[in-house]
Amino acid sequence: MTKKIICILILFLSCKGFASRVDTLLVHSHAMNKEVKNVVIIPDNYSKTNTAYNVVYLLHGAGGDYKAWLGKAPAIKKYADDYNIIIVCPDGDKTSWYFDSPIDASMKYETYVSDELITKIDQTYNTTASKSGRAISGYSMGGHGALYLAFKHQDIWGAVASMSGGVDIRPFPLRWDIAKRLGTYAENKAHWEQNTVINLVYLLDGKQLNILFDCGVDDFFYDANLRLHNKLKARNIPHDFISRPGGHTNTYWSNSIQYHMLFFNDFFKNSKN
């Protein structure tokens, strides 16, 4: 075998390590009366007619967009192949916090992600269109969003994970445009109390949702994640919580997503049993 053929073969095999297709799917949101862009990663052996695929939704952090995950963790293209799943990365309008804002009718990202986007994905691609084939994760604001949406919509999501999630927004009344979504904390305390993840634990019965979350010990959100862990533990809600070295960084998230994919893969396998 010549050196040229060997080089071509190596290049071919290395390229096969990544998903064959990355779509940009435009979805009309009736709730917000606008078009929203979403990255959809299709595994290499995708067949629209023969196989129903499980779907993992990945939410970006504050300041990001639908392409953020591809930049922060390019390996997600390989994970789509490795686990034979579809990965969807919606746009969260930089600082939506994935709420349906009680003060701004143009910001309805809870409705968008948990209803409009899921419906469109299940119509467009061959998916397992039930909670047994659906999982969600995210980093930072997206970690908050993943837990927020899954806690509130346990009929939609079967598994949820969060990395470096802002699981208690109340200590940050002046940051990341949260006040633009909920109103100022001083004048709209009820909005903040009702829309922070740590206050939604009461929705859980410990049977409907598989939960994993992690946070670096040097992260400014670490204390809130630890408090969420202790609150879940006190209420006997099964979950996995991981503390590991690291801060609020791309390096941390690109490492963490590997474990989230393993967690989801186990969930999908067990759901079929």
Rank of each mutant, 00 (worst) to 15 (best):
A234T: 03
Y185F: 15
T251V: 11
C89E: 08
G92K: 04
Y202K: 15
D23H: 12
S162C: 07
H30N: 13
E35V: 11
Y98S: 03
S114W: 05
N250M: 02
F221M: 11
S164L: 03
W97N: 03
P90T: 09
M1Q: 05
Y185P: 06
I76L: 09
P90G: 10
Q208T: 15
V160E: 09
G71L: 02
I136L: 08
S140T: 06
R175F: 03
V22G: 02
S130K: 02
I242R: 06
K233R: 07
G63W: 01
G165Y: 02
H60K: 05
G64R: 00
A73S: 14
A73L: 04
D81P: 01
I257S: 04
M32I: 09
V39K: 09
I121N: 00
K72I: 08
M107Y: 13
A186D: 15
D214M: 14
A80P: 10
L228M: 09
L174H: 15
S132I: 02
I156V: 15
S20D: 10
M163V: 07
N250E: 10
I242Y: 10
Y109Q: 06
Y202D: 15
S114A: 15
A75K: 09
D93Q: 13
N54T: 13
N50P: 00
K77H: 00
N210I: 00
V27Q: 06
S254D: 14
N250H: 03
T51G: 01
N195K: 10
I211G: 04
N270I: 06
A62T: 13
C89F: 01
Y259T: 09
R235M: 13
D122C: 01
N210E: 14
D223V: 12
I156H: 02
H144D: 08
S164G: 15
L59W: 02
L182C: 06
G166K: 01
H144G: 13
L262F: 08
V197M: 11
D104T: 05
L228H: 05
W97D: 03
Y57H: 09
S140Y: 00
L70A: 07
K207R: 14
P245N: 06
H30G: 04
Y57Q: 04
R134C: 03
M107V: 15
H248A: 08
